[in-house]
Write a protein that binds this DNA or RNA. Structure first.
Lengths: 215, 215
DNA sequence: TGTATCTGACAACAAGTGATGTCAATATCG
DNA sequence: CGATATTGACATCACTTGTTGTCAGATACA
């Protein structure tokens, strides 16, 4: 029934797969722009295709529907953010926890400021869209949770001893960082980034000193 | 041109104004149900009217459009939450800050559990809808900020001395509490409420001890 | 009782949506 | 060159949406 042609003809010097990949990437980038302008819910497939300079046919070539594109866009932002943070953290010794967290926060907030459209996708547009998107969002939260908690191997025991829920505890810390980002974005990035980082550090540092440092 | 009749005819024993008010209330309650089921973006005016047992005409009698209803619903939830918290706090002496915060959190989380639909409206559906709704959301955040910071009159000076942004600091604390609520709701309220409160208290308490208690 | 008001069910409309299909022009390659 | 794959502009379809309008019947009031 369906002709499964593994590799198509070359066109303007580029292969079939690469052309597809480039169109897909163009659509994701266009989606960021449109989402940033009118939000996900105000973004139609037509508008995104127009922004990308492509037609609807190529949209459905790469994405099953509009929601799939949102998922891909979120994934792209998440991937870029984590890789930027990892890159910034790479040259550091992991002994100084305070510095690690500070650099991670600085990188995170800096990236959000440099890419306001992506920030909107990452912080706002993703929630409450559908159960599937919620799941993607919470997977990302859990991933960050695990990355953070990896620095404190005995956190689970400590939490249990104190009568806390470790997952919710991590959610709370992430929520603090995210809400600070939201407030910062909303205010048009008015606050200097050093102050933003310092403010987040104040909360995380207090928690750290309370629960992680030796008495 | 327009006949400005201040008060209409009575009907089934109730006045014109009261009938209007009851219909409006019914629409708000129906909106909670529909929002809870399919989200704000999946909720059509028709569906809400059907749930309320009213026709579209009465919708536009009370609300200019669907977004105005969302705003009214959010306002109703916000009002109820604050009044519940105030009522729980009323019999307390305000001297024991820890207890005040604990009771406030317990009331807040308890209310969210008892009204899952309202929780969804309050926590998820409101953000990223439109600039107007964003403004309403942030007004609510600021209102909570001010209520909290009222307990610490010298917070502004302390924050400045430490190089922090007080607004963002408050955003962070609220974000922690809210994200814990989100995680709790998402997990189907599985965690006992005492544990949830304790987990939030762990964060707020650590911050409090670090920045508010005498050294 | 008769008239004005109120109610509810539903029609109607234009606009926009996701998704699929058509088709001529263009580029590739045997 | 000639056949075929690829592209892009546009048509098309069924459907939903917000919003306004119509109208017969129920209720109130003089």
């Amino acid at each position: 029934m369906e002709a499964e042609q593994k590799t198509g003809r070359r066109y303007k010097g580029v292969s079939n797969e690469q052309r597809r990949a480039e169109r897909r990437q163009k659509l994701i980038e266009a989606a960021m722009v449109v989402y940033g302008a009118v939000g996900y819910h105000g973004a139609s497939v037509r508008a995104i295709c127009a922004e990308a300079g492509l037609t609807e046919r190529y949209f459905y070539e790469s994405f099953e529907n509009g929601e799939a594109l949102l998922a891909a866009a979120f994934g792209a932002v998440m991937e870029r953010l984590t890789s930027e943070v990892m890159a910034a953290l790479a040259p550091l010794s992991t002994l100084d926890m305070g510095l690690v967290v500070r650099v991670a926060l600085a990188t995170y907030y800096s990236q959000l400021r440099e890419n306001p459209n992506e920030a909107r996708v990452f912080l706002v547009e993703i929630l409450g869209v559908s159960p599937r998107m919620d799941a993607i969002y919470w997977d990302a939260i859990r991933q960050v949770s695990l990355s953070v908690l990896r620095f404190s191997p005995d956190a689970a025991e400590r939490a249990e001893a104190l009568g806390l829920d470790l997952d919710l505890f991590a959610d709370g810390l992430i929520g603090a960082v995210v809400q600070i980002a939201l407030g910062w974005v909303r205010a048009g990035y008015a606050t200097p980034i050093e102050t933003v980082v310092e403010t987040a550090m104040a909360i995380l540092g207090a928690v750290n000193r309370q629960f992680l440092s030796p008495p």
